[in-house]
């Protein structure tokens, strides 16, 4: 299986590569649209600012390649953190900008959603609750549900049925989505020790 980790200058690629390797797959890291088109499965990682990330995807033509490979071509893709948020059509980090627009909805500050109580960033290990068919992705974890989160923004899909898992932070936040052939997580499987490794393996076994 040819797995390409998409390099769009959004950090954390090595961590993802090593975790994927431990999950049994030897992935490539590439910034080339042709590699995206040739891959069997894609991983879109990312930490940092959404605006700059989208700019980079557009400059390099990776946005078009991803669109062709995933939205049109139906290749399975795993989005992680920022790699989930930029699937939305509206990003509000440092002023509004447009994401890939695959998932209808916005990315809003966690503070706006959870109110004044909880600390932001939402940082640390929290338990996710699968729903809407997301259960299958977590089956191999045998009931273990803790993953590592580190984010100040959160995805708010217009259509709740794409939500594959939520996480309770006083208010439920989106922890994972499934949209067509995309599985994407707000948390970091590559930083979630055994649970993360099993979830990565589940993504490679996934037949959407």
């Amino acid at each position: 299986m040819r797995v390409v980790i998409v390099d769009y200058n959004a950090g954390n690629l090595e961590s993802v590569r090593k975790a994927v390797y431990y999950a049994g797959i030897d992935p490539e890291i590439s910034a080339a649209p042709e590699d995206v088109l040739a891959a069997d499965r894609l991983i879109l990682p990312g930490v940092g600012a959404a605006g700059r990330a989208m700019e980079k995807l557009r400059e390099t033509g990776l946005d078009q390649a991803l669109d062709e490979a995933v939205r049109v071509g139906g290749k399975p893709m795993l989005g992680i953190c920022l790699g989930m948020q930029i699937l939305a059509d509206e990003l509000l980090e440092f002023g509004p900008c447009r994401g890939l627009g695959w998932i209808r909805g916005s990315v809003a500050p966690v503070r706006d959603v959870v109110g004044e109580g909880p600390r932001v960033p939402h940082m640390g290990w929290n338990s996710v609750a699968p729903r809407n068919g997301g259960e299958a992705m977590f089956r191999s974890l045998k009931g273990r549900r803790d993953f590592y989160f580190s984010h100040s923004y959160t995805l708010r899909p217009k259509d709740d049925s794409v939500i594959a898992a939520t996480v309770d932070y006083g208010t439920p936040l989106v922890a994972a989505v499934i949209w067509q052939t995309v599985f994407a997580t707000q948390f970091h499987p590559e930083k979630s020790q055994d649970n993360g490794e099993r979830l990565l393996a589940a993504f490679f076994d996934w037949k959407p």
Binding site: K18, Y148, H188, E190, K191, S192, Q193, G196
Partner: peptide, 8 residues
Amino acid sequence: TAEECFMP
């Protein structure tokens, strides 16, 4: 460390 330990 990061090569082997998948934690923050």
